[in-house]
Design a protein around this nucleic acid. Structure first.
Lengths: 203, 203, 203, 203
DNA sequence: CATGAATGAGGCTTCATTCAT
DNA sequence: CATGAATGAAGCCTCATTCAT
């Protein structure tokens, strides 16, 4: 019993954090980062404004923690769906599917992730926050590109990965927003675009 | 005297409006839409806050008018650089260049257009504002797609145009932000991506 | 008429500033610096919180401006009541009266000046604000001390002035708070203390 | 078992109280009364906020208890260093030293006492708290004054004591804040001032 | 039609205090 | 009696918008 407490306490704390991040994620998705007030996050999380600050020192920290959480989830999801061992000679189209499908699933499961993925289009300087999600995904894609096209100089691989991620990010919003058949169609387009873009690199 | 005035007044009014939009464009580029205050716009435009509201009913209206103005300019620029008459059998790569180059030139000339182009990634619901620029560009691209691939059903052509525009928009930010050689490299990537994406449609 | 406006405008602005400072002075006197909210100052000044910030960038600036205003008034009052030309051989007791009386009159006329005079006892580090009033008065007293006791090394004169001002400041609160006869008695005590302290320096 | 506990409990309680007051004293010295949060006091005392309120009903009560404790300590220190039996015909300068030295020692040993000594300059009405320390010291000084100048009417003796204490308090801050040689110089000045002030009373 | 002072709601954050465990 | 999460009022400040001049 005396041992159970810290656990339960800690558990409660982590649940609270999760609730706050859930609330923030939902609101960021609805109104963006700037359009979401900390009081609104607290209210949505079912706590008082003061409580919010027991878990996060300020609004930015919430966004950062949310980014981190999404990043972890994304990493886990992607790792589960994709391993780098058999990339070598695989056909591009298949690779693209294996990269895109988990990403789409993830984003559909987490609408609002995009608000943190941080408008690819918006310079970080403007928002004042970094975009760890983006960077992490780009790193991952760079690795895949280099595994598949080993002859490509690193800077080129990085640029390719960057462009790829931008394209994916650009279409993820519409994909998430679309309903069943439209979504599938957009996903197909995305894959076609990526395949068309990446195929020449390996020839 | 009473007859001469309206003209001059109107002229002055339009100049004022242009100045306001110039100011807004610059500030949106620097700090984003939310990060830009109407007072700041007025100050940059060299007028008082009260005067600003003589020309625009609210902040959103400024963004809308700016979108419209950019749209007009873009349309004009694009029309000057591109005509639809010889699209029929032209090679895709060339077409892509003819579409992309003026767009890049336009965006480089108008950094900040992107703040209005409205983060392709950000649903209009979030910003609360529509994205006429985007829609107009998409229409234009749809026309080109249909001219080049007449057999494509209209919905497909529209989707293709949409995806194309998303891709362009997604890379325009980095392109504008990049310096000389990096910018050129990114433009090349963009063209490659578009060419890779669009070529299969005509086969 | 067209010329009158800027003047009236400016006049109104300065009146507003004066009203704000009056309100701040009264409230600082009642509740101290920390105990006084900017909203309270605005309310007492009969304006909205927002208006307050049209004239001052933040709370500290109000305190600083108030210090400056009090300083100016004090300087004027003291200059009017005291000149340095005949200090040389004057008897200390008379000098003390000539210094103390205007100060007392000033502080009685401006209760609350003390809140800015900045609790001699409170290190500036704590309040985060400097104490220009104090410094100015000390400078003035240093000058008088050096005029009366020319042989005194400067550091000693400065320390003497500092101690003098501390003593005056320490008793000014009670003096201002006291009623007629008690006040007079305290003023006499203050003068006696200063005379007793300063007389040996000139022998 | 039930009988043994109360003692230990009480002992522990007093130790807790002492720790809280220690923490409060340190923090008051660093940041002043208003600048010190109860949570900070609890943290510094190594307990939880809730526990703090088990010992004190509110923040003011902490300050009051601290005042009381300082008062007791001061009384003890002073009683040890000074007895009233031989005051009668003693030279003023010596008396002053015997009063001032323990006070300085005490304040140096307890920086932060001043925050409670309650800015001599700040009316109690402002802080909302009384100043028992001040009152007690004044009583003590009144007794000394009356022992040394028996002919002085009580009200005069009280006023003299009050002024004396104000002067001491006014210089105690700078004295505590000063380093070695500067401190000594200030202490000398303080003694000179008091001697100059008090000597005439006995003639 | 210009001006710029005025407005006041609302945002982020702190903190004295309470309460469930 | 300890804990520490929870509370919510209040503080400072910003900004879209209005209004007197």
């Amino acid at each position: 019993m005396t041992e159970a407490r810290p656990v339960r306490r800690q558990a409660r704390g982590e649940r609270r954090i999760a609730e706050i991040l859930d609330a923030a994620l939902a609101l960021f998705a609805e109104a963006g980062y700037e359009g979401t007030s900390t009081n609104a996050i607290a209210a949505r999380a079912g706590i008082s404004p003061g409580s919010l600050y027991q878990y996060f020192p300020n609004k930015d920290a919430i966004a950062d923690a949310l980014s981190q959480r999404l990043l972890d989830e994304l990493r886990a999801a992607h790792a589960a769906a994709f391993d780098l061992t058999d990339v070598a000679g695989a056909p591009i189209a298949g690779l693209v599917s294996r990269v895109v499908d988990p990403l789409v699933a993830f984003n559909v499961a987490h609408p609002g992730a995009r608000a943190l993925l941080g408008d690819a289009a918006t310079p970080a300087a403007v928002t004042g926050r970094s975009r760890p999600l983006h960077a992490a995904v780009t790193d991952r894609v760079t690795a895949i590109v280099q595994a598949r096209a080993p002859h490509l100089p690193t800077p080129d691989a990085e640029r390719t990965a960057f462009v790829t991620v931008q394209i994916v990010a650009a279409l993820m919003g519409p994909i998430v927003a679309a309903s069943g058949p439209d979504r599938a169609a957009l996903v197909t387009e995305l894959k076609n675009a990526l395949t068309g873009y990446l195929t020449p690199l390996t020839e």
